[in-house]
Design a protein around this nucleic acid. Structure first.
Length: 835
RNA sequence: GCGGGAGUGGCGAAAUUGGCAGACGCACCAGACUUAGGAUCUGGCGCCGUAAGGCUUGGGGGUUCGAGUCCCCCCUCUCGCACCA
């Protein structure tokens, strides 16, 4: 083949001008409304949702673009399959992040955010996403957060929003309360400051009421397994029992000879029980002491005069202690209360201790300690020289039991010992029978515990939706009437948080002083704002109805478009955002407002883009600015490169050099299409084309974008290496295959091929299964499992032909000594001769 | 500690689920294009070896005609959760 036949006769034989065609098609899409979805009448609705970005001042992050491009390809592919695809985008613009940045640069977030959004919108449009911009939204828009506040009221109405004084995580740097989820190993997730404890009045959502459903529903939805697993861990179901231990001779032990009970202020000598939660009721015969959390309400009741000072000192220390030292320094400390309780199984008195290794927030805030079979209890017992009674032993090891060097936590192939009538039972049966027995005497009940805590939504900050509650001297807590929504966030010059424990809004008297909506008397607004995660827990409900002002979401639109068909986002939101969205959806279902309870039918987590083996960050100086790359290579090349650098669900390492390969690919596609003639097609090329259509059509829905691109590259290589100019029918489907990845190039080439409509209004090409089959098959020939060569035989031929062909090849035959003892033949693949 | 994911050429990665390991791409090497080239095209490219051949998917065992893939033990990295009873 000569050079001249390979070269296309155009002036610029290869290479296209991205800037020109990208501008042209972006303008045309806008003018024609190509990306608009007919939300009321479109056939086969497909809601392709991506997690909306926080519009930072730095602009669009390449990670955002990676995520969005992956969603866009999926969405465009679905459209080519004949769906009406809705791909909306918005901004998660409230929150500490924006506020802190505004403080840093000395601007007001209300001024800053619109600028940032403008910049984001420009960047997003440039990258060629199929976004229906008519439904853009921002959580900071009063017409949006009006309904965030409405949502709060729906929860309040149903008793799912409540206020309580609680020890909360306080970040001394950001000067605000943090949700449990925002505390990483005792540090603020944002600024890494050591988190302290503070007691504040906070609003909570009863998400823990939904723990069981949030957990069991996971089995019904099509989500990334990693995400489901993260949610399961977070919800943390534990099956166990609650067991009561009667406190012994309390009157005699307490100096006052009486105990306070039920908060009535009366003195009584009613018996007092310590309730504990355990997952190992089978070990109760080994429970040699009890431990209460230092904050446990019974502590003051059971402490003896003798122990009082020591107990009080320990409690004081524990309450002051920040969470870091409590969680990082795990040395066991504690104090004996002076009291004893009766072990209901052994009837023996056991001492009651307090220790900070028992957490008030979990279970009942009290445990029965079984040092022989729990590592923490074992450690504690060693420190304070408490008795260690072994009640579990290997099933196969009879005889005497040596003292334990460490806690014996084995539960398989073991049996109960020293456990009265229950000795010799397995752990599973022991649990069952012992709980039954204790329950019959009123000492226990089987119970399920979850680690999931209620969701604290109060934030003592400025940049968020005010919580729609009014406190009236006479009427108490009064919800803002729905007709008065939104409670607008006032423009406040000084929005700097302070150490007071209340929001900066508490300094704005003109705003918080209001008349009570019920009695008209003097009242005061709640000055805390709500958590950003509440804004994002329902935004997907708003998109299809964003033009409706009298309802949060229109009934018909919602019926048609929800639940979300496909959701793509980062796994960093695996527990927070996704769990809250599910919770809110369930609440709305229970309220009769929605008719489904899982918001996202399908969810896939994309991977993360790193650079030089490390996360991108300004301090490392390895941040990729998409603008520069789009400028230089074009949006199509950049998009395709991002999808090619690794498996979409794993992410990958960004490398400047590698972009060139993708640009070459698109240039070759460009040249092939421009150079196409009306010659006959070739059987080899046609076969490869149909194989490629099949492969790409299977890979895109599996988000296997990197291999889809590789397949298209292979096809282009076949096209180029064929000794003739490509035929039109060989390149037209190729234009459609690249369309989801490189939409501008595809549109331009589609137009070049004479089409008047958008390539996205055409249908995805079909492959002919009959054309895919190879006529000759290449068979690997092994001798004793070692590959010695390959043979070519006709596709349908069987073992005999294959063996004959193999023996006819001297390079293979020389390894075959004598007649084969065994022959393994795999049709179309392999022949193995065992000699 | 518990739970998830992953270890494959110089690099990013493939591998129809037990059947030719390294597709595709980057980098590199050689050549072509009447000057140049961070352009384009052609060819080469796992490692050792002139070759025949041998070796090779983190390490070690096993199952199998055949293992990157299945089983057992170990190592490393990574991401969640973490005194949750």
């Amino acid at each position: 083949m000569t050079e001249s036949t390979r070269r296309t006769p155009t002036e610029d034989p290869v290479g296209y001008d991205p800037a020109g065609i990208e501008r042209k098609w972006q303008e045309r899409w806008e003018k024609r409304g190509t990306n608009h979805a007919d939300l009321d009448a479109g056939n086969r609705p497909f809601y392709a949702l991506m997690m909306f970005p926080y519009p930072s001042a730095e602009g669009l992050h390449v990670g955002n673009l990676f995520a969005f491009t992956g969603n866009d390809i999926y969405a465009r592919f679905q459209r080519l399959q004949g769906h009406t695809v809705f791909e909306p985008l918005g901004y998660d613009a409230f929150g500490i992040h924006s506020e802190n940045f505004a403080l840093k640069v000395g601007l007001h977030p209300a001024d800053l955010i619109p600028q940032n959004i403008g910049n984001f919108r420009r960047q997003l449009k440039r990258s060629g996403l199929m976004v229906d911009w008519r439904h853009e939204l921002s959580t900071t828009d009063p017409s949006y957060y009006k309904w965030t506040q409405w949502l709060f009221l729906q929860l309040y109405k149903r008793g799912l929003a409540y206020k309580k004084r609680a020890a909360v995580n306080w970040c001394p740097n950001d000067k605000t309360v943090l949700a449990n989820e925002q505390v990483i190993a005792g540090e603020c997730e944002r600024c890494r400051a050591k988190v302290e404890q503070r007691l504040l009045e906070q609003w909570f959502f009863r998400i823990s009421d939904y723990a069981g459903r949030l957990l069991s529903n996971l089995d019904t939805i099509d989500w990334s397994e990693t995400t489901k697993q993260a949610q399961r861990n977070w919800i943390g179901r534990s099956d166990g029992a609650e067991i009561s231990f009667r406190v012994q001779d309390l009157q005699e032990l307490t100096g006052t000879a009486t105990i306070a009970s039920g908060g009535s202020g009366e003195f009584t000598s009613e018996p007092v029980d310590v309730r504990v939660f355990t997952t190992r009721p089978d070990t109760i015969f080994g429970a040699t002491y009890l431990v209460l959390a230092p904050e446990h309400p019974l502590v003051d009741m059971v402490k003896t005069d003798e122990q009082r000072d020591e107990i009080d000192a320990y409690k004081a220390r524990a309450s002051k202690q920040d969470l870091v030292s409590r969680k990082v320094n795990r040395d066991k400390t504690g104090v004996f209360t002076g009291s004893f309780a009766i072990n209901p199984a052994t009837q023996q008195p056991i001492p009651i201790w307090i220790a900070d290794y028992v957490l008030m927030e979990y279970g009942t805030g009290a445990i029965m300690a079984v040092p022989a079979h729990d590592e923490r209890d074992f450690e504690f017992a060693k420190v304070f020289d408490l008795p260690i009674t072994r009640v579990i032993a290997p099933a196969t090891l009879p005889g005497s039991l040596a003292p334990l060097e460490e806690a014996y936590t084995e539960t398989e192939n073991v049996r109960l010992v020293r456990s009265g009538d229950f000795s010799n039972l397995s752990v599973a049966e022991g649990k069952l029978r012992i709980v039954e027995w204790l329950a019959a005497h009123g000492h226990a009940r089987a119970i399920v515990n979850y680690r999931l805590h209620d969701w604290c939504i109060s934030r003592q900050r400025y940049w968020g939706p005010p919580i729609p509650i009014i406190y009236c001297d006479k009427c108490g807590t009064v919800p803002v009437p729905e007709s008065d929504l939104p409670v607008e966030l006032p423009y406040v010059e000084d929005f700097k948080p302070d150490d007071s424990g209340v929001s900066p809004l508490a300094r704005v008297e003109s705003w918080y002083k209001v008349k009570c909506p019920t009695c008209g008397g003097h009242a005061r607004r709640e000055t805390d704002v709500s958590d950003t995660f509440l804004d994002s827990a329902w935004y997907f409900l708003r998109y299809p109805s964003s033009e409706f002002n009298d309802v949060p979401f229109d009934e018909k639109r919602t019926e048609r478009w929800l639940p979300v068909t496909s959701y793509i986002g980062g796994n960093e939101h695996a527990v927070l955002h996704l769990l809250y969205s599910r919770f809110i959806t369930m609440v709305l279902k229970d309220a009769g407002i929605l008719n489904f309870e899982e918001p996202f039918t399908k969810f896939r987590a994309h991977g993360m883009i790193i650079r030089d083996g490390a996360k991108m960050s300004k301090s490392r100086g390895n941040v990729v600015n998409p603008d520069e790359y789009i400028e230089r290579w074009g949006a199509d090349t950049f998009r395709t490169y991002l999808m090619f650098l690794g498996p979409y669900e794993e992410g990958g390492d960004f490398r400047d050099q590698s972009i060139l390969g993708v640009r070459r690919f698109l240039d070759r596609v460009w040249a092939s299409v421009l150079g196409a003639t009306a010659d006959d097609s070739s059987a080899d090329v046609t076969r490869k084309l149909h194989q490629t259509i099949k492969k790409v059509g299977e890979d895109i829905p599996a988000l296997s974008y990197n291999t889809a691109i590789a397949a298209m590259m292979e096809y282009v290589n076949v096209l180029r290496r064929n000794e003739r100019t490509p035929h039109r029918s060989e390149v037209e489907p190729l234009v459609q295959l690249i369309a989801p990845f490189a939409p501008h190039v595809a549109e331009e080439l589609w137009e070049h091929l004479g089409h008047k409509e958008s390539v996205f209004d055409a249908r995805w090409p079909l492959f002919d299964p009959g054309l895919i089959v190879e006529e000759r098959s290449t068979i690997a020939v092994q001798v004793n499992g070692k590959t010695r060569g390959t043979i070519q035989i006709n596709a349908g031929e069987g073992q005999e032909t294959a063996v004959a062909a193999a023996m006819g090849d001297p390079a293979i035959a020389k390894f075959v000594t004598g007649t084969p003892k065994k022959i393994i033949f795999v049709q179309g693949r392999l022949l193995n001769l065992v000699v």
